[in-house]
């Protein structure tokens, strides 16, 4: 599913502020999968991620009259989900997380008939590994940019840092991934 564009989200934000339930439902349908994926990247469990995102939408409706028209609603949602995910990790720090992530992670997403040894599947597995080895903040900024399609100002808002720092994180992340990628290519094509 494509991420809804900024203009669409702004329109929904205006209608939700006026208590339009249909706009709320549309926003929910458009944003839910991405937000669950984002929350699950912290909690490593789909069920807790789904709970966090549902809580976030309940809060959004309850505070709909305070939606700030100067602020990206997308950033607002990602910020709440991020904070709640981090709280969740803090509260469950000493539990062994049984992850349903790994099972889901093994499923080839785009083409189930594809040979799992296919080079593109191997490559995306490597990328997953490289991304997970990035420093935490770089990883967060990179994922928000690459996977969730947020712009640098939105990411700055979500992570509570400056847009300049977001830029630095993403450049650093890309530069590390590029090094890993070059090295990988040299190994497989000596």
């Amino acid at each position: 599913m494509n991420q809804p564009n900024d203009q669409q989200i702004e329109t929904w934000a205006r209608e939700i502020r006026k208590s339009d339930r249909k706009a709320f439902d549309s926003l929910f349908r458009a944003m839910y999968p991405g937000l669950v994926r984002f929350a699950a990247s912290y909690t490593r469990e789909k069920s807790s991620a789904a709970d966090i995102v549902q809580d976030t939408f309940v809060i959004l409706w309850q505070k709909r009259e305070q939606i700030d028209s100067n602020r990206s609603l997308r950033a607002f949602l990602y910020q709440i989900v991020r904070n709640r995910s981090l709280n969740y990790l803090r509260d469950h720090a000493n539990e062994t997380l049984s992850s349903d992530w790994d099972d889901l992670g093994r499923q080839p997403s785009h083409n189930p008939s594809e040979n799992p040894e296919d080079s593109s599947t191997v490559l995306s597995a490597r990328f997953r590994e490289w991304i997970s080895n990035l420093p935490e903040r770089q990883q967060e900024a990179f994922k928000l940019s690459r996977f969730e399609g947020l712009d640098h100002h939105e990411i700055a808002d979500v992570m509570n840092i400056s847009a300049k720092t977001v830029n630095n994180h993403i450049v650093a992340a890309l530069s590390k991934l590029k090094d890993e990628y070059n090295q990988y290519q040299n190994q497989s094509n000596p």
Binding site: F28, Y32, A40, R106, F147
Partner: peptide, 24 residues
């Protein structure tokens, strides 16, 4: 790098339309 890294996201948990409706 940008293109290939996008495929890494595709393997994160998917959410089906019926799951979205149930959640809503």
């Amino acid at each position: 790098v940008w293109e290939h890294s996008g495929d890494a996201a595709g393997n994160l948990p998917g959410v089906s339309p019926s799951e979205i409706e149930e959640a809503l």
